[in-house]
Amino acid sequence: MVKSMRHMCLNERAVIKAVAANRELGRRIRDMGLVPGTEVLIVGRAPLQDPVALRLKGFTLTLRNSEADHITVEMEG
């Protein structure tokens, strides 16, 4: 199943399918290792559900939902 990263639930695991952001945002996303093929796990959400914290490539990252909107993921299994 393919969906936007924004809609991932806590403790859900998925693989990044595509990143549809360019310029500065796109660069930041890629610099931090969020590229297609990367496995991510949602490890937390801030008190107001936003930003989201996720684990990938052995470290933890946080980004806003508005930024997660640009990332499409494919659910495992």
């Binding site: 500065e24 996303i29 931090m32 470290f59 933890t60 990252l61 946080t62 980004l63």
Partner: peptide, 10 residues
């Protein structure tokens, strides 16, 4: 706003 994306370091 500048992208927020940042590491939550251990």
């Amino acid at each position: 706003s500048t992208p927020f994306i940042m590491e939550l370091p251990p």
